[in-house]
Amino acid sequence: MIEIVIRKYLASQLDVPVYLERPDTPPESFVLFEKTGSGKSNHILSATFAFQSYGKTMLETAQLNERVKDVVEGLLTLDDIYKVQLNSDYNYTDTTTKQYRYQAVFDIGHY
């Protein structure tokens, strides 16, 4: 399952916790990611993932987002991944909880 591969890699490269679902009591800074879509063509798999960076200030959150983008691009060093392409990234502050958040969306090809 590609989510496990990605989570394991991100957790080994980042100095903040990485989750597949939001914890009940989240830390001040963390990364949450989810698969938002996937496809298969000629037996080749691809998926779109949204990586959400959370922090205690807007600056820290933006900096974490930049680190996440660098680390996600490093997935290309893994045998399971053949393509990593940044689709978009943007400020995605949660207006309901007033928690700073950035989101980076990547298209990832995997085996």
Rank of each mutant, 00 (worst) to 15 (best):
I2F: 10
I2M: 12
I2H: 06
E3P: 05
Y9W: 11
L10M: 11
A11R: 05
Q13E: 15
D15M: 08
Y19F: 15
Y19N: 00
R22M: 09
D24C: 02
T25N: 15
P27W: 06
P27N: 08
E28G: 09
F30E: 01
F33N: 00
K35M: 15
T36M: 10
G37D: 09
S38H: 12
S38L: 06
S38M: 08
G39K: 04
K40G: 08
S41A: 11
N42R: 10
L45Q: 14
T48K: 11
F49Y: 12
F49H: 03
A50Q: 14
F51D: 00
Q52L: 12
S53A: 14
S53K: 04
S53R: 05
Y54I: 02
G55M: 02
T57L: 03
M58I: 11
L59K: 14
T61Q: 03
A62H: 10
Q63A: 13
Q63T: 08
Q63W: 09
N65A: 14
N65D: 14
N65E: 10
E66T: 10
K69Y: 07
D70K: 13
E73W: 09
L76N: 07
L76G: 08
T77C: 10
K83Q: 13
K83H: 11
K83F: 10
K83G: 07
Q85V: 14
L86K: 08
L86P: 00
N87E: 14
N87I: 15
S88W: 08
S88G: 03
Y92F: 15
T93K: 05
T96H: 09
Q99F: 07
R101N: 06
A104K: 04
V105R: 05
V105M: 02
V105K: 04
F106G: 01
F106C: 03
I108Y: 03
I108T: 02
G109A: 01
G109V: 03
